[in-house]
Every structure is written in structure tokens, then in C-alpha cells.
Design a protein around this nucleic acid. Sequence first.
RNA 1: UCCUUCUUAGCUCAGCUGGUUAGAGCACAUGACUGUUAAUCAUGGGGUCCCUGGUUCGAGCCCAGGAGAGGGAGCCA
Length: 477
Amino acid sequence: MKRVRIKELLKTNPENQEVLVKGWVRTFRNNQFIALNDGSTNSNVQIVVDFNSTPEEILKGITTGASISVKGKLIASQGKGQTVEVVAIEVEILGDSDAEKFPLQPKKHSLEFLREIGHLRFRTNTFGAIFRLRNNLAFAIHKFFNEKGFVYIHTPIITSSDAEGAGEMFHVTNFDLANPPKTDNGEIDYKQDFFGKATNLTVSGQLEGELAAMAFSDIYTFGPTFRAENSNTTRHLAEFWMIEPEMAFFDLNDNMDLAEEMMKYVIKYALENNAEDIEFLSQRLSEEEKQKPQNERNEMTLIEKLKFCIDNNFERVTYTQAIEILRESNHNKKKKFTYLINDWGVDLQSEHERYLVEKHFKKPVILTDYPKNIKAFYMRQNDDGKTVRAMDILFPGIGEIVGGSQREERLDKLETRMKEMNIPAEDLWWYLDTRRFGTCPHAGFGLGFERLVLFVTGMTNIRDVIAFPRTPKSCEF
RNA sequence: UCCUUCUUAGCUCAGCUGGUUAGAGCACAUGACUGUUAAUCAUGGGGUCCCUGGUUCGAGCCCAGGAGAGGGAGCCA
């Protein structure tokens, strides 16, 4: 007999037919009712056992966390909480679970506690919903780009370029760290290392992505990225997943159009394909909100927030306009910002981004044309000599979710800028070759996948939307 | 890295001005009940009060140092 997944079973018309289900026990009530879950859906199926005819040792083995196999008959439920249920004919304990030691209990647990038992937290309603959603969001991203004819490029995880300037890097070596080979002048001799040079874990696949875009026109990468920054926040990880599309013959407007279309597409996909999980997380968030004081509460539910995001255009504003808005705001005049906005050219702080997104526009905002001094070397310079064709997408509650730009395709301008910013051109000879041989206008962006999952799940800590978070001083599991 | 808060039972937390044997709810165990929905009722077991040192007749509580966690900032995706 073939096992039926609970998701299918719950949609099946009950006709007293025999079924086989397997899963993990969530609760066992009244010595009769098992709530069984197999991860295919957030809902449990109710198994009804006859405690008079079931052996004592089987009943004792039906504890929270145990895995069981049940052969039984599917009937319309006689109780109120569910439409169908399985009347057990035979229950087999596949793997028992000592209820006294199993850390998950049939009660609410804090997210902090669940982080400490990361190996078991998949088995909770909340994390079940989060990771089914994460799965479908990843799939939706591939689907989106595939439908648009993009080529998925696997950029390397180990790189030798340390000139990307995106952050601190993790070194990759197989030297004996207690005794690495040295050169005559006492420096570590990387010529003797595995790759014959110093290597690192990638901080971005963008530069390699640009190489591929100069052949396929439209490409994207979707892979793990590593930053050795000592960042301890709810929005940063040392290992995270990033989506980086790169498009030849695109300018900044095309770039923004694509980013906005992609965000709306994947959110819509999740709403359509994970309705039950989003509904669960939406209610979860509403209950969390009730705990907060009235003035800090979010007026919109998670579902409303997601729909709002799909139905409204992202607000597009230049950095210069944003500075004007912030400078003229009552918030600034009443000195409510920690960092007051006076002059053009300063980098925006989180408080300013939050003000623009959450107070002023009340929707996702795309900021463009930042001062060149606060942005990376590869961004295309505007004719004003002061700004570059950069764009950041800011989301409510999360801040920067996408960072992108039109790239500088003019070799002379790029080389000059690299010199100004002390980027070693000789290390990036291969990157500059794209500007020597058939250069063209092009653009791209990076999307932090976990930040997207944060937004769609309504979770607030990034450690809760990746299965095994890596953060400073923390690499368990 | 900086600022800030926290650490007491398996979990969530209370513990008064430093004073006898450190408590509650849930969980767990045992029993009762048997169409329950985080079942209910009764009974019971369960503690390195984060660690180290200090002050004191006496420290869960005060002081110093350390560790871990949460929140905020910076950096960014």
C-alpha cells in the first residue's frame, strides 16, 4: 500500500477507503486523538485510535515527537475541528520519542529558544510555514528568470579577487595555520597554498556575472555569499543567499522595472501557492502585534501588506529629492532624527530610510542617483560629475532589500574611478577586458534572499528565515 | 565594533528593603475520565538561581570580571 501525504489526504473525499499515512506526532489527546504532521502542509491529520483494542505499549509510544505509521480508514470527521479523519486499524511506532526529554512541547515556545534547538525547529508550525515558503520563493525566482529567457550562471564560491569592496572576506586556505610557509621577508607565502595564491569566499558574484552578461545578454546568479563583517543585527548573516541578475543593453530604468516586476512576481507566486502558510504566519504576526503598545502596532496584516506591495507602484525618488524631503520634514525640523539632515552628500541612516518608507511614502521606495563618493567603483557616472546611476530598493520593516546600478561601460571613466578609489586594476584585468572587447551599456542588481523571505513571512529576525544561520560567534548545527 | 537590556525548574516567568525549607503556569509522570481540538480533573517528581571572585553574621538579590542571549547603531544584501 502506498503512503499518502497528508496534504493530499486532507483534500481527498472520505469514502471509508483504506489509507496509509506516516508522520510525526504533534499531540495525543484523550488517549484517542493523534494530531499527525508530515511536513507536506501546516495542517495535521487527526488519527482516531480505539484505546480499548490498541495494545498498551503502542499507546505509550504515541508521544509528542514520535514517528508513526498508521493504516486506517478515511472518514468524514465526527468532531468539529476538521473535515476528515483517519480511524486507525493498525498503528506502528517507527521511532519513539521520550516525552520527558523531547524539547518541543505542545505549547508556545519563544523564537530564541527554538533557535537553540535549530535541528528540531522545522517540526513547529511556524518554521514549517517559513521553510515551505522559502522553498517556493526560491522556485518562483528561478521560474521568473527562466520565463524571461535569462541564463542561470553558477559564479564561483571561492574567488581570488578581493577587490570587489563589498565587505570583509573569509580566507580560504589549507595551510597549517600554526605554521604557514613564509617568504624570505617573513610574509605568508601564498604561492605555496592550494591555489597558488590568496583566495577567499565570494562576497558577490556580480563581477563574474557581468562577464556572462556580455555573452548571453541576460543572466542571473542565485547562490551563497559570505561576509566576515562583525555585524550583529536582525538583518545580517555571515552566510546568506543572493540573487544577482545582470542585463546587457539595460539602463537604470530598465533595471528598476525588472527588479520591481520580479519582487511583485515572487510575492504573488507565494500568495497563490502558499496561501495556508501565509495565512498562518499572518495570524501569528497579528498576535505578536497585539502584544505591542498601540502606537507601535502595524495597521496592516501580513496579507494586506503583501497585497499592497503587489498592487502599488514602488515610489521612485532620486537621492537629491530624498534629501530635500528629509530636510524639509517636521521630523528633521523638530530634531527627532539622531543624525539631522543638513547637507547634500551624506549617506542616509536607517532612521532616514525608515522615515521615507514607513512615514512619508508608506510603500516600497526606490532611491536613485546617489553621490558617487558613497557608492562602488563600477557604477555609471552621471554627467553632473557628482552622482552615479545607483538604485536601492527600500522595504518597510527591512530597509535595503535590493541594491543595484547601471554599470560604467566606458573604459576610461572606469579606470579613472578605480584609480581614485585605489582599486588595483591589474587584479581585475579580466573585468576590464569586457570594456575593451564589445562593451555595452548594462545594469544589474543584488537581492538578499533572506530579506525577501523576512518580508514575505513577516518574521523580524533573519536568523529565523535561514535553516542554519551563521553569525559572529555562532555556527551550531 | 559601540550602546543597552536580560540570564532563577524542560519552557515562559514571579521572587518585596539582603534574612528560615526559592515559587507559579505550562510541560512531564501516575491515576480518573473517554469525541478531544494546546482536552479536562486529581496527585506527584523536578533547581549548579549563567560562571568566577568579592562585600556581609547572612547573597537569587549588592560589587568586580567573564560568558551567552535579545534589542538598537554602524557596515550592507
